[in-house]
């Protein structure tokens, strides 16, 4: 069955992009979850949905419009949550629901809720092109290199941001880098996973890994491994049972989370 599955080139592309995106999302997720920014993934995916709907209505390439828009949104969210006036979670909720509303209105006025829009919502394996594959390879190399090189700094900033700032670490810079990488990861991943489900790739692996691992490093490695396995497993399951990819991956992630909760309790 596996051979048969990989004989479809669109599935191979989806597997490559999906695996790389899962890897990136889980690494970034470790920092985001620990900083209580879990919902940033959700917010950005809704913004991305809005941007893609507008792109579809205007007939421009979806990535060309959504990448810059989502980058801008990530930057804005970060600024908003740093200023004390609006709390981070409220800022995310405001931006994500507004973007979703814009997307829905634009589509209903133009193309209507066709399959394209449905795919933005729930994901599809058909969407990946060769340029997406290239982009995701480049992106994942960047994320992994940045994460490895800045590992100690990301640890310091995540563990205690005000201390890091006080000692002269450029915390704002590292926050921005993480937010921007998250934005690109989300935009790439949501084509497969769907806007409603992509944030699970960011959150679940980190949460599961934190149940059993006690070190930042082992949490990061464990999350990356889990994320990859869950994605592949979910992908195969979705092929076997003909279920949507995004939802299948989330269900696998949830099952693993349950298992790790249990294991963590036992220890």
């Amino acid at each position: 069955m596996l051979l048969e599955m990989f004989s479809y080139s669109f599935i191979t592309r989806a597997v490559v992009v999906g695996s790389l995106v899962s890897l990136c999302a889980s690494l970034l997720g470790v920092s985001l979850v620990l900083k209580r920014y879990s919902m940033i993934g959700d917010g950005l995916s809704h913004v991305s949905f809005g941007a893609m709907s507008v792109a579809a209505a205007l007939n421009v390439a979806p990535l060309a419009l959504s990448v810059p828009v989502v980058l801008a949104a990530a930057f804005l969210l970060l600024r908003l949550s740093e200023s004390s006036r609006i709390r981070g979670d409220a800022a995310i909720a405001v931006i994500s629901s507004s973007a979703l509303a814009v997307g829905v209105i634009v589509t209903s006025l133009t193309t209507g809720l066709n399959t394209d829009v449905c795919n933005f919502m729930f994901g599809s394996v058909l969407a990946m092109t060769d340029s997406d594959v290239a982009l995701s390879v480049v992106l994942s190399v960047i994320v992994i290199v940045v994460f490895a090189l800045f590992y100690n700094k990301i640890f310091a900033v995540t563990f205690d941001e005000s201390f890091s700032r006080a000692t002269g670490v450029r915390a704002g810079l590292y926050n921005t880098v993480i937010a921007l990488l998250t934005a690109v990861t989300i935009v790439l991943g949501m084509r497969i996973m769907g806007a409603l489900l992509i944030s699970s790739l960011v959150i679940f692996p980190a949460l599961s890994a934190m149940r059993v691992c006690r070190r930042f490093k082992s949490v990061a490695l464990c999350a990356a491994g889990l994320s990859l396995c869950c994605f592949l497993f979910g992908m195969v399951a979705s092929y076997a049972f003909e279920t949507p990819v995004g939802a299948s991956v989330v269900v696998v992630d949830l099952a693993v989370f349950g298992l790790f909760c249990f294991l963590g309790r036992r220890r």
């Binding site: 563990f159 205690d160 006690r214 490093k217």
Partner: peptide, 21 residues
Amino acid sequence: TEVQRDFPAGVFEVVLSGCQG
């Protein structure tokens, strides 16, 4: 701060992070 309560980190790692600046 709040965040530290469930943060997975080793003692040595935390002390070392003081050198970052």
